[in-house]
Design a protein around this nucleic acid. Sequence first.
DNA 1: TTTGTTTATTGCAATATTACGATAATTAAA
DNA 2: TTTAATTATCGTAATATTGCAATAAACAAA
Lengths: 109, 109
Amino acid sequence: MGITKTEIFTERQNKISALAKAFAHPARVAILQHLFTIESCICGDLVDEIGLAQPTISQHLKELKNLGLIKGNVEGTSVCYCIDKERWSEMKQIVNEFLNQDITSVDCC
Amino acid sequence: MGITKTEIFTERQNKISALAKAFAHPARVAILQHLFTIESCICGDLVDEIGLAQPTISQHLKELKNLGLIKGNVEGTSVCYCIDKERWSEMKQIVNEFLNQDITSVDCC
DNA sequence: TTTGTTTATTGCAATATTACGATAATTAAA
DNA sequence: TTTAATTATCGTAATATTGCAATAAACAAA
């Protein structure tokens, strides 16, 4: 008890919630916005930009990477993180399909 | 330490993450999908439909209600929960603005 | 090889979330 | 008023998430 019962939900429902978790934290929203703005990035930039410690930023980046939304290229001693555009689009389609459920429905109460 | 540092983020970033939390759990995704499908609902239906205990469903409904995405009308001994279409659209616009950041950006790495 | 720079990992503490049994509250019907 | 049906709340347990200090790892340059 106390744990999400993944097995009782459909694969799609679990997928949607997993993707939503990517931007269910303001730090990750800020990171993604920053990556979109500057089109390229290193972790150090983010630590300055956002007011969190370096290990915390590194952890959020790891989560975004595990979800596939960003990718990182090692460049010397720093790492260039950027949005994985293709994966971002895939994510967008799945989330939008869920968000657009309302277009066919009518009012009830 | 250990708590989300809401104060260092913009109001918009906090808003986006708060809305994303609504569907960052498969049970809430399932609840919302069900409400869209049948256009009206009572909590009991959801307990049968989804495999979670009544208090758990009630708790998820409360969170969705607090976010304003659903509203509940008392009907006798049961409660008719349904999507708040207007709020849903507002939410969609905010989330989509965030998701559509990529349309103007170009590749970097 | 040593040093400096940058990012990742580990370990831990604090808070948040998820889930449910027990029980309260609400209301319709008997 | 009592009973039955339905949903909400409380209390508690388990797991997940967030955050950071300390430290490791990786690599370029001296």
